[in-house]
């Protein structure tokens, strides 16, 4: 057990190092001089001497590895550098955006799960019924529509026509209702379809006939045994969706002006704000690695075949 844990941790650190280095190099090689960009913000074209001085002050004149390691050293201390554009600490910028993105991601994944699982179960229980067919075609429609269209329609209906919400970001939790609804609408449509497929695959397995032959009701077989046996693929999908949302639902955050991670990332890219971009990429890497690690762990908790086989190879 400890052996595998050490191996995994080393692999984890190596992946993180590789990712940080790559992002640093890509940012370094991309056109546009951060010093010049910073100075142009004042409105006056800076003289070459001033640019040179600023470059020195920002440490941009040092060789690439030196810059990388000083950046990495800062990271380890929790210092991700300072935004070229606003002069704010990068960790502070991301830290401020984080709770908003977390709220959106958590509530979206939670609501999607709560909506999609019961509907998908009903679809399988009553396969080819009217209910099933209506759900199939409705979800098909929402899946084929880009989320920003759903967002704009919702914005028009709820804010412009019905005045339930304001077009500008609402205060407190109210501000999240619309962006989360848009995400939940398109995500749960996709999830109902995916889960229906997963459940109906399980439903045709031999163990289902075995359980029914024992006198267990079809309802219980579906809600208990089929659901449990479907958890591995479902958690994989949900985990990945959660990771994607934690990195920022860029389009939806921008439509509804939620200053989350996705919003920060777009701003940073448009302004070539390298420290923020690097901070964002690092954040992305950490989120994906962490979530995949957790997904992996849950596999062995759920499925004894995975758990015990792992035990054998040790």
């Amino acid at each position: 057990m400890s052996n595998i844990f050490i191996k995994r941790t080393i692999a984890l650190i190596a992946t993180l190092l590789a990712i940080t280095f790559l992002t640093f190099v890509v940012s370094y090689l991309s056109p546009g001089d951060p010093a010049e960009i910073k100075l142009s913000k004042t409105g006056m074209p800076p003289s070459p001497e001033v640019i040179e001085e600023t470059r020195k002050a920002m440490g941009l004149d040092r060789p690439l590895p030196v810059q990388y390691f000083s950046w990495l050293k800062g990271i380890l201390k929790g210092d991700m550098g300072v935004s070229h554009r606003t002069g704010q600490n990068v960790s502070a910028v991301l830290g401020k955006a984080f709770p908003k993105t977390l709220t959106i991601a958590l509530s979206t994944v939670l609501l999607t799960t709560l909506i999609a699982i019961p509907i998908a179960l009903l679809c399988v229980r009553y396969t080819d019924s009217l209910f099933d067919r209506v759900i199939q075609s409705t979800t098909y429609m929402f899946v084929s529509m880009p989320s920003f269209i759903v967002g704009l329609v919702l914005l028009y209906v709820l804010a412009v026509r019905l005045h339930w919400f304001s077009v500008t970001p609402g205060q407190g939790l109210k501000g999240y209702v619309m962006p989360v609804s848009v995400l939940v609408l398109s995500m749960s449509s996709w999830y109902i379809r995916q889960m229906r497929t997963i459940f109906s695959n399980q439903w045709s397995m031999d163990y289902v006939a075995g359980l029914i032959a024992k006198g267990i009701s079809k309802r219980r077989v579906l809600h208990r045994h089929v659901l449990k046996n479907s958890l591995v693929p479902i958690i994989t999908l949900l985990g990945n969706s959660f990771a994607t949302l934690m990195v920022g639902a860029t389009i939806v955050e921008n439509i509804f002006s939620v200053p989350g991670i996705g919003h920060v990332a777009i701003e940073a890219v448009l302004n070539r704000d390298y420290p923020v971009i690097q901070g964002f990429v690092l954040w992305t890497a950490i989120i994906y690695i962490l979530i995949n690690f957790l997904i992996d762990r849950t596999y062995s908790v759920i499925d004894p075949r995975i758990r015990l086989r792992k035990g054998e190879t040790l």
Binding site: M205, D206, Y207, A209, G210, L211, A213, H225, K228, N229, I302, D303, P304, R305
Partner: peptide, 11 residues
């Protein structure tokens, strides 16, 4: 059944 392992709930 013919295949006892397949007709038992795996989990």
């Amino acid at each position: 059944f013919q295949h006892p392992q397949l007709t038992m709930e795996p989990l």
